[in-house]
Simulated assay, not measured.
Amino acid sequence: MKQLQVIGLDEKKSAKLGDKLNELLANYQIFYMNVRGFHWNIKGEQFFELHVKFEETYNDLLLKVDEIAERILTLGQRPMHAYSTYIKASDIEEVKDVHEGRACVGNILDSYQSVIRLQREIQALANEADDEGTAALMSDYIREQEKTAWMLTSYLG
């Protein structure tokens, strides 16, 4: 028995969701690597504070990468798995040689803006497809990231 028959989802709608989730996966992978770079290369007065915050952030992003890939598989699709593919599919661009705290935090905020926008699109598609699993996942991410964005925006003053 096919996976989608078991969970009761439409094949065409699930394929469309899988494509959008792969786009999200690509954005998360680039976002993750950028934050890893910030963690490794941060310098300045806020080193200790930001070094810890960036580690917390990239660990959270890595968990989401795995959850998104598993959701794509649940929908009967195949997750992207090559960085060359991620770079082409991502709206978030690679960031190199950034080590100043405010620039790092600003880039993280820009990245959250990108993934939140895309997650809202996916949530709407999931609702149209009666895909509660994907809709709930996106809702959880959005709620959490809106709060994080507020805190990081407050940090920047």
Rank of each mutant, 00 (worst) to 15 (best):
G18W: 04
E70Y: 12
E67T: 05
L4G: 10
N107E: 13
K43E: 13
L75H: 14
E11L: 08
V115P: 00
Q119H: 03
M33N: 08
L9A: 09
N127Y: 08
K96F: 09
F47D: 07
K13W: 07
L125Y: 11
Q123S: 12
S114M: 03
A26D: 01
I108T: 05
E55C: 05
N41K: 10
L9M: 12
I87E: 10
A26C: 10
R78G: 13
Q3A: 14
M1N: 08
I72Q: 04
E146F: 14
S114G: 02
N27W: 04
A149Y: 07
V35S: 03
R120Q: 15
I108N: 03
A82G: 06
A89G: 03
A129F: 13
R117G: 02
Y86P: 01
N27C: 06
Y28C: 04
S14W: 08
D130A: 03
Q113N: 12
I142V: 12
R71D: 11
G37A: 11
R102E: 10
I142N: 07
I42G: 03
A82N: 11
M33E: 09
S84D: 15
Q113V: 00
A103R: 06
M33V: 12
T153H: 14
R78H: 14
K12G: 07
I42Q: 06
S111M: 06
L17G: 06
F48I: 12
I7G: 14
Y86E: 02
V115G: 00
Y112T: 08
N59V: 08
Y58L: 04
A89I: 00
R78S: 15
L62S: 06
N107P: 02
